[in-house]
Design a protein around this nucleic acid. Sequence first.
RNA 1: GCUCGGGUGGCGGAACUGGUAGACGCGCAGGACUUAAAAUCCUGUUCCCAUUAGGGAGUACGGGUUCGAUUCCCGUCCCGAGCACCA
Length: 858
Amino acid sequence: MSDSKSYRFQEIEAKWQKRWVENQLYRVDIQEDKPKYYTLDMFPYPSGSGLHVGHPLGYIASDIVSRYKRLNGFNVLHPMGYDAFGLPAEQYAIQTGQHPAVTTEANIKRFREQLDKMGFSYDWNRQVKTCDPNYYQWTQWIFSLFFTHWYNKNKACAEPIENLIAFFESEGNQNINAHSPYSERFTSNDWNAYGAEKQMEILNHYRLAFIDETTVNWCAELGTVLANEEVVNGVSERGGYPVIRKKMKQWSLRITAYADRLLSGLDTIDWSDSIKEIQRNWIGRSEGAEIDFNVSQTGHALRVFTTRPDTLFGATYMVIAPEHELLQDICSEEQRGSVIAYAEKAKNRSEIDRMADTSKTGVFTGAYAINPFTNLEIPVWTSDYVLASYGTGAIMAVPAHDERDFEFAKTFDLPITAVIKPENEEITLPLTEALSSKEGVCFESGFLNGLNVKDAIVKAIQEIENRGIGTKKINYKLREAGFGRQRYWGEPFPITYKNDQPELVKQLPVELPEVESYKPTGTGESPLAAVSEWVNSAEGMRETDTMPGWAGSSWYFLRYTDPNNLEAFASKEALSYWKNVDLYVGGSEHATGHLLYSRFWTKFLYDLGYLSWDEPFQKLVNQGMIMGEDGQKMSKRWGNVVNPDDVCEQYGADTLRLYEMFLGPLEDSKPWNTNGIEGVSRFLGKFWRLFYNNEAFSVTDEKATEEELKILHKTIKKITEDIPKMSFNTSVSAFMMCVNDLTSLKCHKREVLEPLLILLAPFAPHITEELWEQLGRTESIHTATWPDYNEDYIKENAFTYPVSINGKMRTQLTLPVNMNKEDVEKEVLANEVVLKWTEGKAPKKVIVVPNRIVNVVI
RNA sequence: GCUCGGGUGGCGGAACUGGUAGACGCGCAGGACUUAAAAUCCUGUUCCCAUUAGGGAGUACGGGUUCGAUUCCCGUCCCGAGCACCA
C-alpha cells in the first residue's frame, strides 16, 4: 500500500516466485562437501477450508531458519507434503459421494496455491502425499517389518521372527527374554509337536504387529475404533461422538516394548519441557512390586501391582476389576448373583459416566485372601475403580494411605489400619483422611517398623522376593497402539488370512480398490469388506481394515530424503547424508500421537539397521496459535478467519511474513490485529525508500561513516544472535530501528545497504531479491554469504551512566568507557543533581559498576 | 485435585548473568506538507500531582534477600496447557 508508486510488491513477488521456480533455486541434492541442515514443518492435512493466517506461522519461522542456514553455507533440506489419508475426506465422500482421492487432490491444489504465494523455500521436487501408492507401499512395507519382528529385551532390540522360531525349535521359550504377554512355558519338544496353526498363534503374541481380541474404543457414529489419544473425555476427538468400550479383533503395534527407550530418549532431545512432560505422563512409568495373595479355599492366587509395598501391613482388603478373569472363579455362591449383576453393569458403563462419577461402587465377592505379611484374612471385593487394563487388574487396598481406597473403605465400612506416620509426630485415630504422602516412618509393621518409606519399600520387596510371593516390577500406563480402522480412506494392510492366521502379502503396494459406498457398515467391518472380488483375491482373503491416520505420518520425514525411490523407502546414501531432522516446527497437539509414534518407528528402524540415529526430531519448536481479532479461535464458525491470500493481495507476502513474526514470541498464542500490519507495511516502504527516491534508484557508492557502520554492525550482531534463538519478533524491531536510524542519516550507501539486504532476505525474500538485482547483482541474494559483524565498529568510547540515588534513577552522566571507578565516583559526586540529593553530606556508600550503573546510597 | 507454563501501559510486546522498566509497533493527541484527501514526515503518549522545574507511585497481590528485584526466595490470588480412580 505504502508508496505504491514505487514499491509494487505484487509485481515484484509474482516476478520472483516465477523466476525461482524457473531457476529451480530451492532444489537441493546431496552435496558431500557441505554440512547438511534439515528443517521440517509438520505437514498439513489438506482440509477443504484451506489455510488461514495461523497455519503459516510455523512455516514462516522454519523458512527463515532454512534461508539463514543456507546463507551460512549449509545444504538445507526443507520439504513439504500432505498428510492426505484420514477421516474428514471420507466423511465428505459419504455426504457427497465424491471419491476422497478427488476431493483430496482438489484441496491439495488449493493448499499449494496458498503456500506458493508466501514465498517459501520448499524443494517441491520432494513433495510426498501419504495417499499415493508410491508412498504407502513403503508404509505397508514398514508394517510388514513390524509383523516379522519381535523384541529381545536382553539386547533391547527388535530382531527377526526367524531368530525366535529357531530359538523355540532348539530351546522352547524357557530362556527367552522377549517383550510378550505370552506367559505359558513350552520346551523345544512341545514347540516342534505343535501344529503350524498353533505355532502361528503363539508367534502372534511376540510379533511387534499383532492381531488380538482387545478392548477398543468403538465410535458407532464414525463406524470405527479410535486410538486412546483420539478419545478426549469419553468422546471422539473428531466430531465429539460417544465412544464405548468393546471387544474386537484388532491389529496393534507393540509400542510398549519401547516404553523405556521412549522415556530415556527424551533426555537426549531439545524439546519443550511441557511436551516431554506430556510424553512422560503418557508413558507413565511406575516402579513397584507384583505380589501374589492366596485366596482361601479356592486354590487361586490373586496377583496385584503396588508402588507401595511398604504399606502391605495396612492392606485390609482387596479389589479386583469387574472384568478380571478370576472373578467368577473366586466368588462365593451366595454372592455370585450380585457379582455378575455388578460386572454386567460396569461393563456397559460408558467412559463418560465413569469419569464423571467417581463415587465408589462395588460388591463383595464372598472370597477372602491372606495378607502374606499379617497372615490375616481380608475380604476381596470387586469395583470399577480398579481398572482391568492397568497393572494386574487387581489391587491390595491400603485405605489408610491411599485416597481411593480410603473413600471405598468409608463407603463400605471396611477396616482402616494406619501403618505410616509422619516422622516425630503422632497421628490421631481414626484417620479422617488418607495419609498418602511418600514421607514418613513405618509402625505396626513388624520387620519394617521404624524404617522410612523409601527404605521400607526396598526391604519389603526383598522380603517378598525371598519368600517367593512376588517380584520387583515396573509398570507402564502406555497401552499397545491400536492400528486398525474400519474405514475406507487409509492404507490397506498387506495381509491375507489362511485358516484364520495372518500372512504377509509380498507384492506391494496393496492398492485401495474402488467401492460403491464409503459408508461404514456399522457392523464393525470396513466398507472394503463389501468388495468381494478384492477381498477374495488370488493371494487369499484380505484384511479389510485400513491403517490409522498416523501410519503415514510416522515416517514421512524419512521419505523426504529420497522421495521418488522405487527400490527402497529411502536410499542408504540419502539417509546417511541427511540424517534426522535438525529443527521440527509444529503444533503441540500431537504430543501423544504423531510425535510419540514417530519416535517409536524411528527406534524400530534403527534396531533393524536402516537408520544410524534413533530420535527423529533433534529440536522441536511448538508454534502458538493465532486467534481471531475477537480473541476466539480462528474458525468458520466464528466468522473471524483471516485468509493469507487476502493479506498477500493487500500488503504482500513479505509484509505478511514480517508481521506474523513481529506479533510476538513464536511459541505464544496471540490475537491477529489487522491494524498492526500497517506498521510492518510502512517499515517495508521506508526500507524501499533507502534505495529509491520515488522512481529513481538512489543508492550511492560513497564511503560509509563510522556512525552508519555502527548501526549496520549492531544490526548484524542482533539478527545473527536472534535467529538461532528463534526470537524473530525482536529481529523485526531491530530492523525497524536500523531503518529508522539510516533514514534519519539519509544514508543511501551501497556499503551499508548491501549487507542489510542479506540480513533481511530470510524474512522478506522478495523485496530483498528485487533490490539486490537493482544493485546490479546477477546471482540470487538467497545464494549470498551472511555478513559478519565487526566489534570495532560497535565499540563505544563513552558510556552514559544512569546515576541512581538509593536505587532510583535521578540523572545521567556521560563518561569515557575506560575511566576507572574512583574517577567515576568523583565525577558523580561532583554532579549538581547528586549534590542536591546529598545536601553536602557524605554518602553512606557509592556503588560503581563500570559501564553499567552508579548508585549513591544516602 | 496434581504437574508444567504464565501474569509488565489503552493494545501486541521489549528488558543481557540482579543494574536506566515500558525498546519496536499499533492506537490516541497535536503539528508540517496539500485547495483537499491519501501517502509521508515531526512532536508527545505508564499513572497521579504540578503551568514549568520537579516530585510521588508503579511489572497480579503480600512479605523477604540486596546498594539495587519484572528478574532470586516464601506465601496468596488469577489465567492458560496437560493429566485425571494408573494402585
